[in-house]
């Protein structure tokens, strides 16, 4: 599904060069639910942005669904993003002056569906997250957990194969966080591959696999588990 080999990403400002990712290699299989943890500033968001084709790596190779995406044009990358990838952010990132209905409509517009098909998908995805009755509401009229469910509905409406979530529960209390997590697990059971960045070790453990990023690199997994167990003990 996703295969990264020796990906590098550096940000250059006038004075300093930050290496956000260094020799970053990772493989995620179809249908997996992978959690990503690591200290702040270690490169987790950078990894998701590259995986989601929002940013281009400085070097290295990235295959999405077997397709080399390094040399694609912006239009092709946007098309892939629209069709194959769903994003969920910590800050929900709903568009404040659009109703829930119109928010979920956004990716479908860029997909070029007709009005009937868009309506069908919007209604279906709102139903999946249990917010059908709120279609006409504005985001500000919902609780944080509800807003994040709308964001998930928006990510699902295009029926992506690949869901990227950056601390989706970071702004939620534990009850709502659990609800969102259950929703993601449910989605994953239906076949969507999920990569989720989280700071919450309990949620991280519920994934099929946990990877840890330290200093822009995937750190050795066994070592991590040992460290984790040491921490628990």
């Amino acid at each position: 599904m996703l295969k990264m080999h020796n990906i590098r990403k550096s940000y250059r400002t006038d004075t300093i060069e930050t290496h956000a990712l260094r020799d970053f290699s990772l493989e995620v299989n179809e249908g997996e639910f992978v959690s990503v943890t690591g200290p702040s500033g270690s490169g987790k968001t950078t990894f998701l942005n590259i995986a989601g084709l929002l940013e281009t790596p400085t070097g290295g190779q990235y295959l999405l669904d077997g397709q080399e995406v390094g040399n694609l044009s912006d239009r092709e990358r946007s098309h892939l993003r629209n069709e194959k990838i769903g994003f969920i952010f910590q800050g929900f990132n709903l568009i404040p002056d659009l109703s829930l209905f119109d928010n979920i409509d956004v990716p479908l517009r860029y997909r070029g569906f007709n009005a009937k098909e868009r309506r069908r998908r919007i209604e279906k995805s709102l139903e999946q997250v249990g917010l059908s009755a709120r279609a006409k509401h504005l985001p500000a009229q919902l609780s944080g957990g509800q807003q994040q469910r709308v964001a998930i509905a928006r990510a699902l409406a295009g029926e992506p194969r690949f869901l990227l979530a950056d601390e989706p529960t970071g702004n939620l209390d534990s009850l709502m966080a659990r609800q969102v997590m259950e929703l993601l697990e449910f989605i994953n059971q239906w076949g969507t591959t999920i990569v989720m960045v989280t700071h919450d070790p309990d949620l991280a453990r519920r994934a099929h696999r946990n990877i840890q990023i330290v200093d822009g690199q995937v750190s050795d997994l066994r070592q991590n588990i040992a460290a984790d167990e040491a921490a628990i003990a």
Partner: peptide, 16 residues
């Protein structure tokens, strides 16, 4: 711009 960022993430190309 933040709204535009969201649109880009959801599949809007630069030309869109």
């Amino acid at each position: 711009a933040p709204e535009t960022g969201v649109r880009r993430a959801l599949g809007a190309s630069r030309s869109a």
